[in-house]
């Protein structure tokens, strides 16, 4: 096994906001209907996080649990911990209908930072950022591809599919170019 490499190997760009590709991050798609016995325990066991409410993301240290749809959660954790977390989820949801899969490598993750970080995303997503609530995980699109993002630590974290990481980096860079502040 070689070291896992992220799609863009940590590419970065400094414009009126600072962009960098981070990761690889451990990510698990957990599908189960709300109220499935053991679901809260599974999320807790995998991430240490409480169950997120609708469209919210709960963070706990390096881990997070985000609400993706009524029967889908995105669990974020250190890359190396995925196998262990999957096992713990399996135990907690033993006998319950669910699906937990490793999607760490199917994704690319970006940080957009700086006082005007929101402006970069305002150019790409049909989302009312003035109304984006704290800890709200918003799924939408960035220009022509699917993206999910949330605000944290003086910026935004954006997740997209790995194959379009270069496209998304291009979008973010063009949007963050100096002189293009909104």
């Amino acid at each position: 096994m070689s070291d896992p490499v992220s799609a863009l190997q940590g590419a970065s760009y400094d414009g009126f906001a600072q962009l960098r590709e981070i990761g690889p991050l451990g990510m698990i798609t957990l599908r189960a209907k709300a109220g499935t016995p053991g679901l809260e325990a599974a999320v807790q066991a995998a991430t240490g996080c409480a169950m997120p409410q609708m469209r919210r993301i709960v963070r706990q240290g390096p881990c997070a649990a985000g609400w993706m749809s009524p029967d889908e959660l995105l669990l974020i954790l250190p890359y190396a911990d995925v196998a262990g977390a999957l096992a713990r989820i399996g135990e907690a949801l033993q006998g319950q209908h669910h699906l937990a899969v490793d999607v760490s490598d199917a994704r690319a993750v970006f940080r957009i930072e700086g006082a005007k970080a929101d402006q970069v995303l305002r150019k790409l997503s049909p989302v009312d950022f003035d109304r984006l609530e704290p800890n709200e995980l918003r799924r939408s699109r960035a220009a022509q591809v699917a993206a999910a993002f949330w605000a944290e630590e003086g910026g935004f974290t954006l997740v997209c599919f790995r194959s379009v990481a270069g496209y998304v980096m291009g979008l973010l860079s063009v949007s963050a170019r100096p002189g293009a502040e909104l």
Binding site: M54, S69, P70, P126, R138, R139, S140, R141
Partner: peptide
Amino acid sequence: PYCGIDAEETEL
């Protein structure tokens, strides 16, 4: 009705 977002047509 599932996630409460007022989605615009390009998201649908």
